[in-house]
Design a protein around this nucleic acid. Structure first.
Length: 875
DNA sequence: TCAACCTGCAA
DNA sequence: TATTGCAGGTTGA
């Protein structure tokens, strides 16, 4: 079989990869690796498809001397290469070296010329050549033995061109290709060519006359503008052809007869790939030589595995010695009949204890009470011995949780990078543990490996947090909150099921009636819940005018329906239908279904979901219970205190994000407005519209309020004009006047974006960072998004830090002072409690004091506290 | 059964 | 072309 040699145009592939792969990945030292990653993805895909016998990679070296001599402006207007790309070339060369792929660089020449030279030598030797490049100049090199490989779109969609495919696509043969390029020119390389002649024209001329010489010999057969252009630009045409002609006889040493791929050592590749955290490609590369990654197994010791009676003492000894025990509590692979069929593993310096069921849970409870332990998700683990259902017994107390010494690996991963979609042991091992999590067979082995990994990860994660300055957010804010949240989740929230059911029946009756009237107006029955069917009725049957599009057709969202309601009754009815249907399905029907054994709903407060540091709530989400409409407030009235004789108490920060804007920006007028204690939005209106406060109308105040809120999210004039339903120009003027009135805000926001662009992250007052790779995006829309999140993160995130600190302190004080009140719910700037009637004044004072004083700012933190028989009345 | 999409609830 | 979330319904694979 003929030897098949693949030659890669390294510069071309690096550029493609750099632009195709988002800049979200880095080497441990922070150097971007997206181009390297994409390069490897393309290379591996190509190797799989083409199975070359040997691989060579060419890179440009120095300036292309010969072409610059011939044409001074050659590639002159090309912008200089991004630094983020430039720094990836040495990495790529290093990796190619580890893969034993020869790298050829010839000073003064471009990759194409190296490709051409190698192809020529191959043809001499009788070898077959594949040239991998994105540069169309290379098509001139196609021949019976040489084919061109290009990526079509993305990174891994590949097309292969032989002479026939070149001719089919461009209408010229490879031999004619330099003439073709010479006639066309190339604006991106500053090659002039002949004006007025593009790809079509050049191909047509060459089909007729064969070569550039042929064309100029037969100029008399041409006419008009084309003749004129060809005659006036003869020199440019030939010069352009010279420049586009690839040189095929460069002088460099390369042993093609002995070249072979793959011929690398697995150790060298593993070492090099590991150094740049490119583990996702590592396995595929190693597989080429039939090797597997040695991974971290060597350093991850979980044996001996100790079961039975020796397990408890092994762990107890480790705890006594002050060791941090790695813990994993896992569901069995086979679903069991028993609820507590958990497998528990406890990794110590002298082996791993593995137990099942109640024995595992009892040992874990002991670890929680007495020891120091590390686990992927401490709150979830704790729920095994402190269930989120008060009708189930708990093996530890809330006080135990407040005192426990846990290391939460997921939380550590979160404060280091809050934009990861899930924090798994696998990912943490890849990123911080020095290699992949070893695979294991069977429940016991899996649990043992996971426990050992948990123990193994403590030090690298602690070191990373220390290095990144994230230790404070972890140790002082997020970690202590784990016990508080576990306790809140166990406490749950009480709902009035009778009332929900009654409202559900009423809503159903209203929905039936609305449906009837909607069908009558439509002239036929249809599924009102289906936006598609509704769109057909609105825009085809009724002939209303579509106002907005979405991916699947015309939008029927509330803003559209509201507009259409001005001229037709049906959309108005659909709006009412939607409100009822939404509230019924999401709350009235769903909440009673979510009750646990104690009749309460136990939401999960997730601490590692949001990018800003806020909590999120799910199953059910108690952070989006309605409040704005009358029906919404009646749903809130179904949330009641936990016990008879108790009240529902709610405490919320007033405008905390705007106060943080005042504090962070230091704008004197904003700070003064908050310190004066006057109506903040009215005072904004007065400053922005240049009026005395007494003359601010409700309309003006509400506009000022919208601007205030918009500023927090980085809203632009367009967005404001939409939200206030005013002309763009008016919105623009309002925002301009706002920034004139508060010049400190303007400069603060500008500085924040500039710093985030420089650092690659934005951070909160307490060091919680959000990495924002979008700030480096070339796409303006993405970059705009990055800028808005850079502005928003310090406000939204600092507010989240502050209320978390307040929760930790409130929890501590409630236990210290022996109050019976229970913290049930957090809604971003609000804390909700169930409190015995006799304790309510004391709780109110305590909560206010803690929330207002948990941090000291340039402006006061105001807290509104109120209570009543239900959540609705506690406002 | 699942994922993508549309829609809409909260701070 | 205003940030952060969760969830229910429909649709189509």
């Amino acid at each position: 079989m003929t030897k098949k040699i693949a030659v890669i145009d390294g510069n071309s592939l690096m550029h493609r990869a750099y632009h195709a792969v988002p800049p979200t990945m880095n080497a441990p030292d922070g150097t971007p690796t997206n181009a390297v990653f994409g390069f490897l993805a393309m290379l591996l895909k190509f190797i799989d498809m083409a199975k070359p016998d040997a691989l060579v990679c060419a890179f440009d070296a120095g300036k292309p001397a010969f072409r610059m001599e011939a044409l001074e402006q050659y590639k002159a207007q090309r912008p200089p290469m991004d630094d983020e790309l430039r720094v990836q070339f040495p990495i790529m060369e290093e990796l190619l070296g580890a893969m034993n792929v020869p790298v050829v660089k010839v000073k003064g020449w471009e990759g194409d010329d190296i490709l051409g030279t190698i192809a020529a030598r191959d043809e001499e030797l009788g070898f077959e050549t594949l040239l991998v490049t994105g540069d169309k100049d290379a098509y001139q090199l196609a021949s019976g033995a040489t084919r061109i490989v290009t990526t079509k779109k993305g990174v891994t969609d590949i097309a292969i061109y032989g002479p026939d495919q070149v001719e089919e696509r461009y209408g010229v043969t490879p031999a004619q290709f330099p003439d073709f390029l010479g006639l066309m020119g190339d604006s991106s390389d500053n090659i002039p060519g002949v004006p007025g002649i593009g790809a079509k024209g050049a191909a047509k001329l060459l089909q007729r006359f064969g070569t550039m010489e042929g064309i100029y010999e037969h100029l008399s057969e041409l006419k008009g503008k084309q003749l004129e252009n060809l005659r006036d630009n003869e020199d440019a045409a030939f010069l352009s052809r010279d420049i586009a002609t690839i040189v095929r006889d460069l002088d460099f040493a390369l042993d093609l007869e002995d070249a072979a791929f793959p011929s690398f050592s697995a150790e060298a590749v593993e070492e090099a790939f590991g150094r740049y955290q490119l583990t996702s490609h590592l396995a595929r590369v190693l597989k080429l030589v039939g090797a597997e990654a040695t991974r971290a197994e060597a350093r991850l010791v979980w044996e001996p595995v100790v079961a039975g009676e020796a397990a408890g003492p092994l762990v107890a000894d480790a705890l006594r010695a002050g060791e941090t025990v790695g813990v994993a509590l896992m569901e069995p692979e086979q679903v069991s009949l028993f609820d507590n069929a958990v497998t528990g593993a406890f990794a110590t310096s002298r082996g791993t204890a593995v137990l099942a069921g109640d024995e595992a849970l009892a040992l874990f409870a002991q670890v929680v009470r007495e020891g120091s332990f590390a686990v992927l998700d401490a709150k979830e683990a704790v729920h095994r011995v402190f269930p989120a259902d008060t009708s189930l017994p708990a093996l530890v107390t809330a006080d135990d949780l407040a005192a426990m010494d846990a290391f939460d690996l997921g939380l550590a991963g979160y404060v280091l990078n809050s934009s990861v979609s899930a924090y798994t042991l696998e990912a943490l091992m890849e990123a911080h543990g020095g290699g992949a999590l070893p695979e294991a067979e069977g429940d016991e082995a899996r649990a043992a490996v996971a426990a050992a990994a948990a123990r193994h990860l403590v030090e690298p994660l602690r070191a990373a947090m220390e290095r990144e300055g994230s230790l404070k957010a972890y140790r002082d804010i997020d970690l202590p909150l784990v016990g508080v949240l576990a306790t809140m989740e166990r406490t749950g929230a009480a709902i009035d099921v009778e009332r929900l059911a009654e409202m559900g029946r009423a809503a159903q009756a209203e929905l039936d009636e609305l449906s009837q009237r909607i069908f009558e107006l439509a002239g036929e029955p249809f599924n009102i819940d289906s936006p598609k069917q509704l769109a057909r009725i609105l825009f085809e049957v009724l002939g209303l005018t579509p106002l907005k599009k979405n991916q699947r057709g015309y939008s029927t969202d509330a803003s559209v329906l509201k507009e259409l309601a001005k001229e037709s009754e049906l959309p108005a009815l659909v709006l009412r239908y939607r409100e009822q249907a939404k509230l019924k399905s999401t709350y009235l029907d769903a909440l009673p279904r979510m009750r646990a054994g104690d009749g309460r709903v136990h939401t999960r407060f997730n601490e590692t979901v949001t990018t800003t540091g806020r909590l999120s709530s799910s199953d059910p989400n108690l952070q989006n219970i309605p409040v704005r409409t009358e029906l919404g407030r009646r749903i809130r009235a179904c949330f009641v205190p936990l016990e008879p004789g108790e009240l529902f108490l709610s405490a919320d920060y007033s405008q905390i994000e705007l106060r943080l804007l005042a504090h962070l920006s230091g704008d004197e007028h904003l700070v003064a407005a908050f310190n004066s204690g006057a109506d903040f939005h009215a005072s904004t209106a007065a400053r922005v519209f240049g009026l005395p406060v007494e003359e601010v109308t409700p309309e003006l105040r509400s506009r000022a309020k919208a601007v205030n809120f918009g500023i927090v999210y980085g809203q632009q004039a367009y967005g404001l004009s939409q939200s206030l339903d005013i002309p763009f120009g008016e919105a623009k003027e309002m925002i301009d006047r706002y920034f004139e009135a508060y010049p400190g805000v303007r400069s603060y926001l500008d500085d924040t974006v500039a710093r985030a662009a420089e650092d690659g992250f934005a951070e909160t007052m307490f060091g919680r960072k959000r990495h924002i790779p979008e700030l480096k995006a070339r796409n303006a829309q993405q970059r705009g998004f990055g800028e808005r999140t850079a502005m928003n993160h310090p406000m939204q995130g600092s507010a989240a830090d502050i209320i978390k600190m307040a929760m930790n302190e409130v929890d501590r004080r409630l236990r210290e002072e022996g109050l019976a009140a229970k913290l049930m719910i957090q809604v971003h700037d609000e804390l909700d409690f169930s409190v015995p009637e006799g304790e309510v004044e004391r709780l109110a004072a305590l909560v206010r004091e803690v929330m207002e004083n948990v941090v000291s700012l340039a402006v006061p933190l105001d807290v509104d506290v109120s209570w009543g028989p239900t959540w609705a009345e506690a406002h």
